[in-house]
Design a protein around this nucleic acid. Structure first.
Lengths: 130, 130
DNA sequence: TTGTATGTACACAGACAATGTACAATAGGG
DNA sequence: CCCTATTGTACATTGTCTGTGTACATACAA
């Protein structure tokens, strides 16, 4: 069995619905979920994750507001071809810089080694160049 | 006036006390706050940030639990020489990989350009090599 | 037409975040 | 020594957020 595309962790502070949003959006950006695909129904994904279906529905609603999904009853969650990213909020890039540094600081403090962090950074950078 | 070392953003979902923790920890890791320094008293930092002092106190308490600070009444928050990072939880590195990808996906979706993201990743990577 | 698979709406319980207020400890001045 | 001001602490309170329960609306298929 392949590792599930979406996993959640009840032990961390990030609320489950936001973990779902983050995980699904990652797959949408990198193409693992492509326009025309259907996401699993809220009740099915909820079963897989062990949460209530309304929690999944909330995540789908947020993704629909972001323009990724078209939600229609009885038809499930259709992945849309999402228009060009809206012009970035000018604060977005500096905020990214800060959050990236905070994330790295957090994992360094947690004992992840510098080479390991470096490796992940460069892997992601590599993926962006393509 | 220099840009303040710590800033918070009431418009985002991350609670203020956690924003404070993240910002201060970043400075602790990169050395802007060094062992022997004193952080501002909770009431003063709270004034600067426009929040209640108990919110700052909560952030300081978390950092003290992480081993960064020694809190004593009337003496303020003393920055400790923090022992070697505890052995990393084996899940920490994979979790970092995931969170990094989620962060990048989020800002890409928000319209930050790939070169801009790449630049920040490489900047942080550079800082880690030193 | 009817049943059923789907998303939606909304109320509710519990957890969490931020604050208000009172208190405890301690450094420093007299 | 003792007092006082400055600092962190404790805990109750208030409002918001999260996750769930339950009932409903919609639309496809037989």
């Amino acid at each position: 069995m392949l590792p599930p595309l979406i996993r959640i962790d009840l032990s961390i502070a990030t609320p489950v619905y936001r973990q779902i949003v983050d995980a699904v959006r990652t797959h949408l950006v990198d193409g693992a979920f492509a326009p025309g695909d259907h996401l699993p129904p809220v009740r099915q994904l909820a079963m897989d994750l062990g949460v209530h279906f309304n929690t999944v529905a909330e995540a789908y609603r947020i993704l629909a507001e972001e323009g990724w999904l078209d939600l229609k009853r009885r038809r499930g969650a259709l992945v849309l071809r999402r228009g060009v990213p809206r012009p970035a909020d000018p604060a977005a890039a500096p905020l990214f810089a800060r959050r990236l540094r905070e994330l790295v600081a957090e994992v360094r403090a947690a004992g992840v080694t510098r080479p390991r962090i470096l490796r992940e950074l460069l892997l992601v950078a590599k993926g962006l160049e393509a």
